[in-house]
Design a protein around this nucleic acid. Structure first.
Length: 428
RNA sequence: GUGACCGUAGCUCAAUGGUAGAGUCCCAGAUUGUGAUUCUGGUUGUUGCGGGUUCGAGCCCCGUCGGUCACCCCA
């Protein structure tokens, strides 16, 4: 291994240009989907008071945080998620905005955990939330947003689906089965493991709570019928033509204690994949964090870049779409070849003029043989090479893919390029 | 936090306990005005690190750090 100073910390990534372009491709899909649905982008701080997370998740969470005491002796933590900041800001500032708020944020989050597939210590998360709307229309709107983003990346209903559940279904079960309501969270944690544990192990845990595996299985079968609290959400998504993505699945409860209604997870239809996004309704969280000063219903969606990136690589459609996007990012309209160093000043003027015209143009900063400059043009993904040499102001323009060369002059260069290229690349 | 597997050139990987190599990438030249291929030359290593066994360790043993995967957890 190289010297310690040359490697990133465990679970942290160095994003070289290709990695950065991949990230930007995902960000663009998130941002575009949110924009299409009327969500406004906002941004909060990366560092927050550790107490914000204690208040939301309890003292245990501190073990999973990057946290320290700052020079002002404040206990602070790098954010492990975006929702607490949102809740804090909304509780403080909600009177400045008409309800419902439709806000989204993209940002780095940090968790001090063992890195593994789909999980790093620094990752990007996209959160979209609707605050101040209690109807299930908001829940459906967010699920539709998640589907829209995934479709923008090239996923179809053959690749991904949404599993939909509702905490109230289980509250009802707890009531009906006569379980101790104080044990609801413990009960839901058992349900969360429904698919991962053996029925006998589940049964043992459920009996300790006052029910049985068989009773829960029977309940889940009846709960799948779409006539409970999920019916309006499903009907809404059906009306949008997104029904193919949706599966009612009571087994989805998500670990979070603060969910109060709808909960959902996006997952890959490929076997063994982990959830790529999730969310749900959290009508009490803002009230909890503000000590009751502000109570607003809310529903949120969160999607991380790591699992999503893995899934893009593993799914042909999205992978090809991303490759096409990467090729576009790296491309240039023209590479100006300085064939005669005496003409470098003229070449620079051409470069500048083409750039001011909105074209993507590059050239060799140092003097180099023409062959080298053509290689550089090729490697940079340039679509044409413009040769500036002794015949100035006449110029040769070569379409690199077609290997065709035409002669023009400096005054007509822009028009010649446009004719050769059809249209310049989209502006970066 | 637990466990398994793996650490050799920038990258992908070889090397029976006996002189550390190949491909690729990168740089330069063949080529003083045109990209691919090809050819030639070149740079690159305390074999992750630290101990131990041995005449001798990339190889065996112990520890440690890191990577990957699974478990736990997953906001």
């Amino acid at each position: 291994m190289a010297a310690p100073a040359l490697v990133s910390l465990p679970g942290f990534r160095d994003l070289t240009p290709r990695d950065c372009a991949r990230r930007n491709h995902v960000f663009a899909a998130w941002r575009a989907a949110a924009g299409r649905s009327g969500f406004a982008e906002w941004e909060g701080p990366t560092l927050e008071s550790t107490d914000l997370y204690r208040k939301k998740s309890g003292e245990e969470i501190v073990g999973q945080l990057f946290h320290f005491v700052d020079k002002g002796e404040r206990e602070v933590a790098l954010r492990p998620e975006l929702t607490p900041t949102l809740a804090r800001v909304v509780a403080a500032r909600h009177r400045d905005f008409k309800k419902p708020l439709k806000w989204f944020q993209i940002g780095s989050c940090f968790r001090y955990e063992a890195p593994q597939k789909g999980r790093l210590r620094e990752f990007y998360q996209w959160n979209a939330d609707i605050i101040g709307e209690e109807s299930s229309a908001a829940d459906a709107e967010l699920i539709a947003l998640g589907i829209d983003a995934l479709r923008a990346l090239g996923f179809s209903a053959d690749d991904v689906a949404v599993r939909l559940s509702d905490r109230r279904i289980w509250n009802r079960f707890v009531d009906a089965a006569g379980l101790d309501p104080a044990q609801t969270t413990a009960f839901l944690q058992v349900i969360d493991k429904w698919e991962r544990e053996k029925p006998e192990a589940l049964d043992a845990k459920l009996r300790a709570l006052g029910t049985t595996q068989e009773a829960v299985a029977g309940f889940m079968a009846t709960a799948r019928a779409a006539d409970g609290p999920l019916a309006p959400v499903v009907a809404d998504l059906d009306a949008r033509g997104l029904g193919d993505f949706v599966r009612i699945d009571p087994g989805i409860v998500r670990g979070l204690a603060y969910y109060t209604g709808t909960v959902f997870e996006f997952f890959s239809l490929r076997p063994g994949a982990r959830a790529i996004a999730g969310g749900g309704r959290y009508d009490q969280l803002i009230g909890t964090l503000s000590d009751g000063a502000v109570v607003l219903p809310a529903v949120g969606l969160g999607m991380g870049d790591v699992v999503l990136g893995n899934l893009i690589d593993e799914t042909p459609g999205p992978r090809e779409r991303m490759e096409a996007a990467l090729a576009e990012v790296g491309a240039l309209d023209a590479w100006v070849v300085v064939a005669e160093e005496a003409r470098r000043a003229d070449a620079l003027r051409l470069v500048q003029s083409l750039r001011e015209g909105g074209r993507r143009v590059d050239f060799s900063l140092a003097a180099a043989k023409v062959g080298k400059q053509f290689q550089a043009a090729e490697a940079a993904g340039a679509r044409t090479a413009v040769v500036v040499g002794s015949e100035w102001p006449a110029l040769k323009v070569k379409h690199l893919a077609r290997r065709e060369e035409v002669t023009t002059d400096a005054a007509a260069l822009a028009a010649t390029l446009d004719a050769l290229l059809g249209a310049p690349l989209s502006r970066p």
